[in-house]
Structures are given as C-alpha cells and as structure tokens.
Amino acid sequence: MDVSVIGISSEAADLYRYFLRHRGDGVGDAKQALGLDPDMVEAAVEELERLSLLDLRDRHKVMATEPRIGIERLVESRLNELNAEIRRVLAARDAISVFAEDQQQGERAANALDIERVEGLEQVRQRLDDLCFFSYKETLCLHPGGPLSRGAIETALPLDTRSLRRGLAVKAVYHPRSLEDPLMAAYLRDLVSLGGEVHITEEPIDRMVIFDRSVAVVPIHPKESSRGALLVREPGLVSQLVTYFDGVWGASKDIREFTEPSKEPPLLSELERRVLSVMATAGKDEIAAREIDVSVRTYRRYVADLMARLGAVNRFQAALRAKEENWI
C-alpha cells in the first residue's frame, strides 16, 4: 500500500491506522504502544493533523477521520493538482508559434552558406574530437607538409583507434616528408596496423578533414592552421571537397607501396577479388552484394576503395584496369 502519492508518509500511515483501530486513545498511548521515537511520533501526528486525518483538539482523546472521507478528500485534491499540471503542460504548446517565429527570424538572418568559424587551436581540436565521436561511416584526411608534432600525434592516435574499432573507415594522405620523422613514421605504421589506410603523394595538397562526407574542416588560413578552422556543412561545397579528396587519393600511392615498391600485383583478399569480379557484370549493388554474400554498405565501401586504388572513374573501368594490371 503506497499512500505517499497523496502526501502521507509511511510513519504517518502507521500512526493513522493505530488511531483507527484504537479510537479515543491519546498521543501518549500511541507512543507507548508503537515503541517509536517520540519525535517521530510527534512529526507524524502533526502531518496527519495537517492532512485533516486526525482531530487533536484533545491530545488525550484523539479522533481519526473516517477513511472514506479523509482519504477520498486527499485523492481528490491530488487529482486536482495533477489536472492543473496537465493543463499547464498542454498550454506550453502555445510556445511553439513563438519559438517558430524566432527560428524563422534566425533563418532569415543566417548566412547564405552553412559555414562555422572556430578560432584557436584548442577549440578546433575539441570540435574535431566531437565530429569524430559522432561519425558513423568514415573520416578522410589530407595532411600537407612535414610530420605532425608529438602533441598532435598523441591527440590523433586515440581518435583514430576509437574510430577504427567502431568500424569506421579512416583514409589519410600525407607528404613523403612525414616519413622522415621516426615518431611520425611509427604513428602511420600503427594506423595501418589498426586497419586505417594511408597514402603518400608528392603533389601539393590542401589541409582538410572530412567526416562522413557531410562535414568538412579546413583551416581559416591555409598557411597558419593554428589560427582556427572553418566547419563547412554546405552540401555543394562539401561535395566539391570530397571530389578533390577522391582525386588526390586515386593519384597517390599506398604507404606500403611507396616505402617498399614492388612490381608484383597487389595482394588482394578473397573478398576484394570477388568484388572485382562482379563489378562489371552486376546491374545493381543489391544484386552484387547478394551474390558475394555481404551487405550493400560493405560492398559499396569495397567498390569505392578499389576504384580509388585503380584510379578509375567508374566501375566498368575499374574492372578493366584490374584485368590489365593482373589483379584478377
């Protein structure tokens, strides 16, 4: 029995039941009979009097209110409170129109492009951490110039590790100068061993990071990345940056091929060979994925990676180049 919902504590409920069973007993009788702490009994008596469940005009002869009257009155009072609360909650819907007007004003005053300016290196790192945490598909990076600083490496490796363990694809392109630093070279080896993909290019590239092909982060000033960054969410601009990345990626070399060039065809997994074999023949991704027994998402990821490695602009061309290069 839980009567706390109508404002009666468990101690007060026990005392109320006592006086219902012992009509005419006094407060002192209750203290002695129940063996409770006197202060606790006094507090419960005051609570019951406040709730109109006890008549204490004579403390030596306490009269308990009939439950059908006293409890019903408390229930009705509580229901009235709840109904009033419900009406106040429903009235909050009136605020929708007010907030909607604020939203419309904000949209009218907003810039034409969805670009956020973040200043300061620490603030940029925090935003990168947030974007990385909430990504669910892939991270694409371009790193021009030489090696990263020790601090940057110590910041980047945990983020990359977390992403790869969550199943995200991590693709990064670096300049050969990055490999001149032993700490940087070790970081890149660790990244590859965890499942990341690292390419090397000697061509000039612009610094940027793209999350899930929907948010791009570029420096405010291309030569002074410490000044801050621009977070670009405008679909048209992000699409152009993704196209730029894909072009750089396709023209660059895998770090293993760059550091240990080989004339032999690249080692392909059995699944990669099966993907190549159906790319030029299957009409739809769903059919191809079903044929090699993988999800459509997995199939598309493998296709995109193989096309980039082959420098192909479409799947048919990728299949042809794979045959020309003796990949299959």
Rank of each mutant, 00 (worst) to 15 (best):
V238G: 04
G236K: 03
D246K: 02
A216W: 01
T243P: 00
V217N: 09
R233W: 05
S252T: 05
V218A: 14
I255P: 03
E257P: 06
S239M: 04
D254A: 00
L231S: 01
A216S: 09
R233T: 06
S239W: 01
L237Y: 06
D254H: 07
R233N: 01
V218E: 07
H221I: 07
E234K: 13
P222W: 15
R256W: 07
R227N: 14
L230K: 05
E257N: 10
G247R: 15
G247E: 09
G236H: 00
R233L: 05
Y244L: 12
Y244D: 06
D246N: 03
E257W: 14
V248H: 13
V248Q: 14
V232C: 07
P235A: 02
Y244P: 11
V217T: 08
V232H: 08
L241C: 11
P235Q: 04
R233E: 05
E224G: 11
R256S: 10
Q240T: 01
S225W: 12
R256T: 01
F258W: 10
R256P: 00
V232M: 03
T259V: 03
E224W: 14
V248M: 15
V242E: 02
G236I: 01
S252N: 03
Y244S: 10
E257L: 10
V242C: 04
E257G: 08
V248K: 13
G236S: 09
G236Q: 05
R233Y: 00
D246W: 02
T259W: 05
P219S: 09
R256M: 08
D254W: 12
P235Y: 08
S239T: 04
D246H: 01
V238N: 07
R256C: 00
H221G: 02
D254Q: 10
S225Q: 15
V238S: 11
V215K: 02
H221V: 05
Y244N: 12
A251H: 14
L237D: 07
P219G: 07
V248F: 13
